[in-house]
Design a protein around this nucleic acid. Structure first.
Lengths: 109, 109
DNA sequence: GCAATAATTGGCTATATGGCAAAGTATGCA
DNA sequence: TGCATACTTTGCCATATAGCCAATTATTGC
């Protein structure tokens, strides 16, 4: 009855997506985008970094399939592709809360 | 009714946890640990790396609060602290499936 | 005490990542 | 046509990460 082990290939696919979220600025951006689409200049103001830096972050998110872009006029509007990220972050926050309190059991139930 | 923006501090806390999951080997380990506790030598065999490497990966997971350890005899038994990671990975897999399909659609037009 | 096993730690190197600045590209407007 | 705006890309540097090997620590059994 042992479940089959996760293949290295599938683990690498997951890692690609998770790595794309593994940066504070990208987390802030994804969080903001969950409210609706935004252009690069808005996101630049949000995270307070150089626009070139923000653009690179967005490239990372895009390559992982988390966001997509639409060009309208001079602006590139980015939007989230997936709604399940809210639960994703909920789980992460729970882990943090639990960890900071050094509790060991009963997460996310 | 605009929701408040996520603070850089909270984003950094989330990033710490997410970064700890942003590696294929660590994802494999977490996946295996969802079935129950394992010692380092078992996990070493699972991912096929040097034991010192695996030990370092486990340190990363531990520092993020994802796993905890118990020593019994010669072995250190690691176990998952959180069950919500299954949903977490489910979301990631969904993103991958969507993204893969989107890429296929794009190239087959 | 000594050897064997399990795991962690330190040292080192290769590679990846993140940042800004500067140059390049595309669109809109006068 | 020419300039401003909004991005992206490139270049370069600093730092972080992952990997293995070797050395060290801890526990068990002889």
């Amino acid at each position: 009855m042992t479940r089959e082990k996760l293949s290295p290939t599938k683990a690498a696919l997951r890692a690609h997506v998770i790595k794309s979220l593994a940066h504070p600025s990208r987390i802030q951006m994804v969080d903001a985008l969950s409210e609706g689409e935004m252009c690069v200049c808005d996101l630049t103001e949000l995270v307070g970094a150089d626009m070139s830096t923000v653009s690179k972050h967005l490239t990372v998110l895009k390559s992982a399939g988390l966001v997509s872009v639409e060009k309208r006029g001079l602006n590139q509007f980015y939007r989230l592709n997936c709604q399940c990220l809210a639960d994703f972050f909920c789980c992460v926050d729970t882990i943090n809360a639990q960890h900071t309190r050094a509790l060991q059991d009963a997460c996310c139930e």
